[in-house]
Design a protein around this nucleic acid. Structure first.
Lengths: 341, 341
DNA sequence: TTGAAAGCGATACCAA
DNA sequence: TTGGTATCGCTTTCAA
């Protein structure tokens, strides 16, 4: 049976309260006693028991404030499922969430949402947001006041965040390149559909792709690159036009999940979906459907459920346990084809 | 704040002990009182608190007995890592494991190992074993005595197991077929390296593969099929011979992880590894290395870590909580190429 | 600076 | 058939 605080107290000949004070650095213990306790802790191999800790911690419940730009964006559905699964599993331990969903990336809206969360006196923040001077300052101040901030899906390099959890976008791009290299046995005429030239993550997906194509010396012709701002309608128009101009296109690489439906509709209308191989990102509902219909051939996914689920768990154990998480968790690039969807 | 057993007791006007007896069906409560308690539980939305339960459960620690045919088989390394991670995380809750590792599938050895585990008075079993009349009988008797039995990696259809967790072998085969269909742009001359004709799982990997090749109408020539009994040396000899006889082979499908090193050595020696695309199973240490070296192009993995990790967690929560798991958990078929390994 | 004791939620056992 | 109480390991508060 494991060593408990009681054993330590008995061994050292002090009360459990004193041992607790030493272990959790609450102060108010003479150096001499503290040293003896610490030595006993070391020698006897004491490690605090979570069940006991959690039970005692119920006296002050934990609320985690979450912010996602998820309104109208199906990608975040799985992240949210992860949030709620974690909340449910940890609800016995006193955890509850406050989730704010906003639309898009308007700094004012994000700032207001963050302020609302903080006004509710949350014990931690878990956010996918953007860095503006105001937001960065607010989050850093929050962290400084002892309320940990976690960055999910979108990293915040200038914020003193407890950790980041999300995709490794470069690896995603590299995987796309690797797959295309494996699949490409003949001449490759490639059409790239990009989200936005100034969103860093989308750029990385192209950079990684190009890296691998070069490393593997996979010959290909880059027929066209279209930027869609993640808008399906824009993607549709652009794809239709480009495909009509270029009958030789046989591969399409879509770096942003929201564009896939538009691209596929164009392929369908031109009756070219059998002859073109499509690589896209994220297994949200629409994209799964498109894969089942045979429009998308390969989906590269980023374990979005796990992003939400793990984020909440890391925060909880940090709060209740003091367990410090790693600074960065990169979720895997998961390859899905029709058969293992 | 959530409803506790105390709240129920107060509302009904009985003691906490009585409420506990009703909730856990321990008997010895008058029907009238039981009905009132049950009604209160329903109305007030009571749900037992895990932290409290776990703490109380420490009075009788939980030991889980595990049996794996893992001796000399690197595949099981990750399953074992999953076991120990779960043990570590749950050690605060009084969980410890007894792991017996045996070599191969000798029924006598398995039976003896199971008997040893049971002699140690374990609270549950988690096993990867085979079905013989004796083993099936022993496990069924164990389950009947209230010691739950979980099947991991290898299902035991005739055993009254609490659940099975492991790969869906058919889906694995189907995924292999889907990938080959995507990659095959020209003529396909295929060499299949199988483990054993009478191990059901290996057969399913071939069946699923064939299904998809037919569904997708992917043309291919099956040049040869060799059975290796999962022995790397046998695989080496067979591959060398077949490759020499058939210079046209451009795809190799290896359905059993242990054969991959032998196959790759043959490819290396014949200087054909660049011209042949290799699909294999499981990301154990050797196979990962072979992929990095460029010998294996695609690895189909089965989340072996999760098999071990989840199995222990399901058993624990069943024992302490009464949470009944699903009857079957199929881990995903994870596609790994060099870029997302 | 330290000890003693109550309490978190559930369980188990003894007594009535 | 029931109630009362000690206990699991830890935190927190009140006294000393």
């Amino acid at each position: 049976m494991a060593v408990t605080i009681k054993d330590i107290a008995a061994a050292v000949g002090v009360s459990r309260g004193t041992v607790d004070r030493v272990i959790n650095h609450r102060g108010g213990v003479s150096e001499e006693v503290a040293a003896r306790v610490e030595q006993a802790v070391e020698e006897m191999g004491y490690f605090p028991n979570r069940a006991g800790r959690i039970l005692a911690a119920r006296k002050k419940p934990v609320t985690i404030g979450c912010l996602l730009p998820s309104d109208k964006i199906t990608f975040f559905h799985d992240v949210i499922r992860g949030f709620f699964r974690a909340e449910r599993e940890l609800s016995d331990f006193g955890v509850s969430l406050r989730l704010k969903e906003v639309r898009g990336y308007d700094p004012e809206i994000h700032l207001a949402a963050l302020r609302e969360l903080l006004a509710e006196n949350v014990s931690a923040l878990c956010v996918a947001t953007i860095e503006t001077p105001e937001i960065t300052a607010l989050l850093n101040q929050t962290a400084a006041e002892g309320v940990p901030v976690a960055a999910i899906n979108i990293d915040l390099p200038h914020v003193n965040r407890l950790f980041y959890i999300g995709s490794n976008y470069l690896a995603g791009g590299r995987t796309a390149g690797g797959l295309l290299s494996l699949m490409a046995k003949g001449p490759v005429s490639l059409f790239v559909v990009a989200g936005s030239s100034n969103i860093h993550s989308h750029h990385l997906r192209i950079e990684g792709f190009a890296q691998v194509m070069k490393e593997k010396e996979t010959a290909y012709t880059l027929v066209d690159v279209q930027v869609t701002q993640d808008d399906s309608e824009v993607a549709y128009e652009a794809t239709k036009r480009v495909l009509q101009e270029h009958p030789e296109i046989n591969y399409i690489y879509i770096t942003t999940s929201g564009s896939a439906p538009g691209v596929c509709r164009a392929l369908e209308e031109l009756e070219r979906k059998k002859r073109v191989t499509v690589i896209a990102f994220d297994d949200n509902k629409e994209n799964k459907r498109l894969m089942k219909e045979g429009s998308i051939d390969v989906l590269l996914c980023q374990e979005s459920f796990r992003q939400g689920y793990d984020a909440i768990n890391h925060l909880f154990y940090y709060l209740v346990d003091g367990t410090v998480p790693k600074a960065e968790y990169f979720t895997h690039t998961v390859i899905k084809i029709g058969e293992n969807l």
